[in-house]
Write a protein that binds this DNA or RNA. Structure first.
Length: 92
DNA sequence: GTTGAGCGTT
């Protein structure tokens, strides 16, 4: 079973490769991605990592508050992606 | 600088 991990408070200098390398220390990273602004191409300061549940838990507890470029990372299980209750849908 | 893109609106 995979767990979706949210990684927030990333420095804009952090890339997908940086995030992957960081989490690979704690397990097999299925996928890693730093979200970038679709128009400007700049980092949005957060990203996602998918790992097996147990390894994800280990990574979360180990990397929560990890300081990267002076920024304490926020690491926890991700919220939603696109599927969620109708009431919670965004108002785009 | 905090939860992915974008169906086209709960």
């Amino acid at each position: 079973m995979l767990k979706n991990i949210f990684v927030g408070n990333l420095p804009f200098s952090a890339t997908t490769d940086d995030v992957r390398a960081l989490f690979e220390q704690y397990g097999e990273v299925q996928s890693a991605k730093v979200i970038t602004d679709r128009e400007t191409g700049r980092s949005r300061g957060f990203g996602f990592v998918e790992m097996p549940t147990e390894e994800a838990d280990a990574a979360i507890s180990a990397l929560a508050g990890y300081e990267m470029d002076g920024r304490p990372l926020r690491v926890n299980e991700a919220m939603e992606r696109r599927e969620r209750k109708p009431q919670q849908r965004r108002s785009w």
